[in-house]
């Protein structure tokens, strides 16, 4: 596709989205996900219309109940008269690069509601619990007019801090069964969360888990926003109303004139860091694979003639050189 036809296609999709055409919305997300020229044109056209939605990321270990909670939260937001866009990210297989995206199963009741748009995404090899393009997909749903955008991350462990770069409010979900996990919880994850949920509060040990979280929060550095801890039973919906209230509170905080600018700068910086990091590594490695430089550097390190750090430096120097003569988008 030529640059101008991609621009036109992106513009058409953006117009379709403005008219409320859901097929155009779905198609636009596909392009953003592929990060192709049409997807970039869509994002460029839509970005000025973003900023209205409250965006909420839901993260936590595998099986803690993220999907169940997101479905409940979406239903609660619908009761409050808000339309909801959902992005559910599942892992891609590192071997086949395929993925089995099963989050719709737990969100059945929502799928016949015209006020809900649910999109499953594969992480496509991106680390950090999110697909690289997730923040772009959030922007598209925001521009499409959804009042709330919920993002469920891959439940892999404790490294899903990146959700903080795609959404304004990050909810970290744990469960009573995760007592040891809370004890060893990484500061990084605690710091990106603006809300902590102890889900499966129907199981024994929920109060202990809450106490452990509060103790951890007490020793964290003081912040402008104190993360509340909410007990919930996603299966029955208990605690979900309170969670929605707390999210609204945090959103008021984020949008409060006294913090709005700083909050937004933090978010945008995190987004740029994520995008640049991913793009740089992809470019450096693609170019080095193509030219054979990667193979020869590996040979040198294997033979211990070079150390890995200087090999990495050499790869980065390689893209700096190609960037200087980078051809225009095709």
């Amino acid at each position: 596709m030529t640059a101008s036809s991609a621009l036109a296609a992106g513009g058409d999709l953006a117009d379709g989205i403005a008219r409320g055409d859901r097929r155009a919305l779905a198609r636009a997300i596909t392009h953003v996900e592929r990060d192709d020229a049409t997807g970039r044109a869509v994002l460029a056209a839509l970005y000025p219309r973003t900023g209205r939605a409250q965006s909420v990321g839901v993260t936590g270990s595998a099986g803690v109940g993220k999907s169940t909670l997101v479905a409940r939260l979406a239903a609660e937001q619908r009761r409050r008269g808000r339309s909801v866009g959902i992005v559910a990210v599942d892992p891609s297989s590192p071997f086949s690069h395929g993925a089995l995206l099963g989050d719709r199963i737990r969100m059945q009741e929502l799928t016949s509601d015209p006020g809900v748009f649910l999109r499953s995404m594969a992480s496509r090899g991106h680390l950090g619990g999110l697909a690289e393009s997730a923040s772009g997909v959030v922007d598209v749903l925001d521009a499409a007019g959804y009042d709330v955008v919920l993002v469920e991350t891959v439940g892999a462990g404790q490294d899903e801090v990146e959700v903080a770069s795609a959404t304004q409010t990050t909810v970290l979900v744990t469960s009573p069964a995760a007592g040891d996990e809370i004890q060893s919880m990484k500061a990084g994850l605690m710091e990106v969360a603006q809300l902590l949920v102890v889900n499966k509060a129907d199981l024994a040990g929920a109060d202990t888990a809450v106490q452990q979280l509060l103790a951890l929060l007490a020793i964290a550095a003081p912040r402008a926003w104190d993360p509340p801890v909410v007990k919930a039973v996603a299966r029955s919906g208990e605690g979900v109303e309170e969670l929605a209230d707390r999210i609204d509170e945090h959103q008021r905080h984020v949008r409060d004139a006294r913090h709005a600018d700083a909050e937004r700068r933090t978010l945008v910086e995190a987004q740029l860091v994520t995008l640049v990091t991913a793009a740089l590594s992809r470019r450096a490695l693609a170019e080095a694979r193509r030219s054979g430089a990667l193979g020869s550097l590996i040979d040198e390190v294997v033979a211990r003639r070079r150390d890995p750090r200087s090999a990495a430096e050499a790869l980065l120097a390689g893209i700096a050189a190609t960037a200087a003569g980078d051809p225009a988008e095709d």
Binding site: S96, L101, I105, Q108, T111, S112, L118
Partner: peptide, 26 residues
Amino acid sequence: RDAGMEVIYTGIRQTPQMIAEAALQE
């Protein structure tokens, strides 16, 4: 999935509307 595709599975008991809606959104 093992053949490298991204597969959305929606579970049992789907109405024609639910299937069509999933196809559109995904």
